[in-house]
């Protein structure tokens, strides 16, 4: 279709030069996309064919479910009716097994991600800005940082109990560190030059400097932290749910224990799809917000 646009512009001698150039570059872009899409399709087909062949050779679904069995399980889970009970409110909503599990996961994923990110960014900005705070807290942050979020499950259990709260706690720890380091690096990397320029233009207090110079300049780095944690937190969700919190990750292990590995893989695919959608959505927002970037 864009090829037609390109040809159309080229065959129309009256078209303004800029318009023609624009159409050409669009044409180039789509051609590139078409060829990479084609290669992608080939690669995917080969992968699925090899998987199907391997599954046929193994011959036992619980050892290796075929892509067709997984797709079937996915559709069954996506359509099997159930209800979803909204916590705190107590109301029951009609749902399907898949959407109900996904909502369960989101109930700890989202609060953990949001609270962990906000706290991590706040501490990162604080330590990146204030040398004294940095000196005071660096030993502690260096020591705590290498501990995998899941190790804190002990405290999730004894403080909160395993459930949405405990899982959100673990997710929050993961989001915290990722965002802490990106915000810290972003703030530390803000050029002295820009701060001097701002000072020469009348900025004479720390809060204004942070709000008008440091935060905007650190936004690309902070955004990278948020995007990374959006992905990493799904990994943590699955791990946290292995301990019994309801959701997609729990279904993966639960189905496997019943030898329904086709259902397990279907839920693995759910994680992947949700990640792709949320990452894609965030990238879109990032591109708009950071349109000024080189």
């Amino acid at each position: 279709m864009s090829l037609e646009t390109g040809t159309g512009a080229a065959s129309d001698p009256a078209a303004a030069p800029e318009e023609a150039a624009e159409a050409d570059s669009l044409g180039d872009l789509s051609e590139f996309d078409v060829s990479s899409l084609a290669y992608g399709a080939v690669g995917t087909t080969v992968f699925l064919a090899l998987w199907q062949a391997a599954a046929l050779a193994v011959g036992r679904t619980y050892l290796l479910p075929s892509p067709i069995e997984v797709a079937t399980a996915f559709v069954v889970e996506l359509t099997a009716p159930t209800t979803f009970t909204v916590p705190f409110v107590g109301a029951s909503l009609p749902a399907t097994r898949l959407t109900a599990n996904l909502l369960q996961s989101l109930l700890h994923y989202l609060p953990g991600l949001v609270v962990g990110s906000v706290l991590g960014i706040a501490l990162g900005v604080g330590m990146g800005w204030s040398g004294r705070l940095d000196d005071a807290l660096t030993p502690v942050t260096r020591f705590l940082r290498p501990i995998p979020p899941l190790a804190w499950i002990v405290f999730a259990i004894v403080w909160i109990g395993i459930g949405h709260g405990g899982a959100a706690f673990i997710v929050g720890i993961g989001a915290f560190w990722i965002n802490f380091y990106n915000a810290y690096a972003g703030v530390e990397g803000v050029s002295t030059h820009l701060r001097e320029v701002a000072a020469s233009l009348g900025v004479d207090d720390d809060l204004t400097m942070i709000r008008k110079v440091v935060l905007p300049a650190a936004t690309p780095s902070i955004a990278t932290g948020i995007r990374t944690s959006i992905g990493q937190c799904w990994m943590i969700v699955v791990a946290a749910e292995l301990f019994g919190a309801p959701g997609v990750g729990f279904q993966i292990i639960n189905a496997a224990q019943n030898l329904a590995t086709d259902v397990s893989v279907a839920y693995m695919a759910v994680i992947s799809l949700v990640f792709l959608v949320s990452d894609g959505a965030f990238r879109r927002v990032e591109r708009r917000v950071l349109a000024w970037r080189d």
């Binding site: 030059h193 320029v197 020469s200 905007p216 000024w292 970037r293």
Partner: peptide, 16 residues
Amino acid sequence: GTDRGMVFQEYGLFPW
């Protein structure tokens, strides 16, 4: 201070 307007070699524009 704003009584001295400054112009630098590296421009120092706020890119955002």
